[in-house]
């Protein structure tokens, strides 16, 4: 079971890594924002699989924090892109 879960974690990471290459290339800002979402759920999955592969149940708390803060970051990044899209530049009025 340990071997299976470790390989499963590898497959999840592989999917995330390949997807990351695609979304980071853009071209639009929205594509790049997807990288944060992809990484968020992918790393939660990998973290859970590692937790059960190693019998380290404390990692579940870490996956919980990861889920919460990755969501927060994705939202903050989208809001920032929305605000700056209106003002023409990442920076906002001063830029």
């Amino acid at each position: 079971m340990t071997a299976f879960l470790n390989i499963a974690a590898f497959v999840v990471l592989l999917g995330v890594a390949i997807g990351l290459v695609r979304v980071l290339r853009g071209p639009s800002r929205a594509d790049r924002l997807m990288a944060v979402q992809l990484l968020g759920s992918g790393s939660v999955g990998a973290c859970l699989l590692l937790a059960f592969a190693g019998g380290r149940f404390a990692f579940i708390d870490i996956a919980l924090t990861l889920a919460l803060l990755a969501a927060f970051a994705a939202i903050a990044f989208s809001l920032s892109a929305l605000d700056s899209g209106r003002e023409g530049e990442i920076g906002g009025p001063e830029s």
């Binding site: 979402q37 968020g40 759920s41 919460l68 994705a74 989208s78 929305l82």
Partner: peptide, 11 residues
């Protein structure tokens, strides 16, 4: 959070 995030990205 994913649903909300996807909404925002679509915007």
């Amino acid at each position: 959070a994913g649903a909300t995030g996807a909404q925002l990205v679509a915007r």
